[in-house]
Amino acid sequence: MKNFKLGLVINPIAGIGGSVALKGSDGDGVAEQAKALGAIAKANARAALALEILLPYQANITIYTVAGEMGEQTAKALGFATQVIYQPDSEQTTALDTEQAVQALMAQEVDLLLFAGGDGTARNVCHIVGDRFPVLGIPAGCKIHSGVYAITPKAAGRVVELMVTNQLVSLTDADVMDIDESLFRQGVVKAKRFGEMQVPSELRYIQAVKSGGKESDELVLQDIAADIIARMDDELFIIGSGSTTAFLMEELALSNTLLGVDAVCQQELISNDLTEPELWQLLKQYPQDKVKLVITLIGGQGHIFGRGNQQLSPRVIRAIGKDNILVIATKTKLNALQARPLIADTGDSELDIDLSGYIAVITGYNDQVLYPVASPQ
Results as ranks from 00 to 15, higher is better:
residue 2 K to I: 13
residue 3 N to D: 14
residue 5 K to N: 12
residue 5 K to L: 05
residue 9 V to G: 00
residue 10 I to W: 02
residue 13 I to H: 11
residue 16 I to R: 04
residue 24 G to M: 12
residue 26 D to F: 08
residue 29 G to H: 01
residue 29 G to M: 07
residue 31 A to K: 00
residue 46 R to H: 12
residue 47 A to V: 03
residue 64 Y to P: 03
residue 70 M to C: 11
residue 70 M to N: 04
residue 76 K to D: 02
residue 77 A to S: 15
residue 77 A to Y: 08
residue 87 Q to P: 00
residue 89 D to F: 01
residue 90 S to K: 13
residue 93 T to L: 02
residue 95 A to K: 11
residue 105 L to F: 03
residue 110 V to L: 05
residue 112 L to I: 09
residue 113 L to Y: 07
residue 116 A to F: 01
residue 117 G to C: 00
residue 121 T to Y: 06
residue 122 A to Q: 11
residue 129 V to L: 00
residue 130 G to M: 08
residue 134 P to A: 09
residue 139 P to A: 10
residue 147 G to E: 00
residue 148 V to R: 00
residue 152 T to S: 15
residue 153 P to A: 10
residue 154 K to A: 07
residue 156 A to M: 02
residue 157 G to V: 11
residue 161 E to S: 14
residue 170 S to V: 06
residue 171 L to A: 09
residue 171 L to Q: 13
residue 174 A to I: 03
residue 175 D to I: 04
residue 186 Q to E: 14
residue 188 V to G: 09
residue 192 K to Y: 02
residue 193 R to Q: 15
residue 198 Q to F: 10
residue 199 V to R: 06
residue 201 S to T: 03
residue 201 S to N: 12
residue 202 E to F: 14
residue 207 Q to L: 15
residue 214 K to F: 09
residue 214 K to Y: 10
residue 223 D to V: 09
residue 223 D to F: 06
residue 223 D to Q: 15
residue 228 I to S: 00
residue 228 I to M: 09
residue 229 I to R: 08
residue 239 I to F: 01
residue 241 S to A: 15
residue 241 S to Q: 10
residue 241 S to H: 05
residue 242 G to F: 08
residue 246 A to N: 04
residue 246 A to G: 02
residue 255 S to H: 14
residue 257 T to G: 03
residue 265 C to T: 14
residue 269 L to Q: 07
residue 269 L to G: 06
residue 280 W to I: 06
residue 285 Q to A: 14
residue 287 P to Y: 12
residue 288 Q to R: 15
residue 289 D to L: 05
residue 289 D to G: 00
residue 289 D to W: 03
residue 293 L to T: 03
residue 295 I to K: 07
residue 296 T to F: 01
residue 298 I to Q: 10
residue 299 G to K: 02
residue 303 H to G: 09
residue 304 I to P: 01
residue 305 F to N: 01
residue 317 I to P: 06
residue 317 I to W: 00
residue 318 R to P: 04
residue 319 A to E: 14
residue 319 A to R: 09
residue 319 A to W: 01
residue 324 N to K: 09
residue 327 V to D: 07
residue 330 T to I: 11
residue 332 T to W: 05
residue 334 L to C: 12
residue 334 L to V: 12
residue 334 L to E: 12
residue 335 N to P: 01
residue 336 A to P: 03
residue 340 R to V: 08
residue 342 L to G: 00
residue 342 L to P: 03
residue 344 A to H: 07
residue 348 D to W: 07
residue 348 D to Y: 09
residue 353 I to V: 13
residue 357 G to I: 09
residue 374 A to K: 06
residue 374 A to M: 10
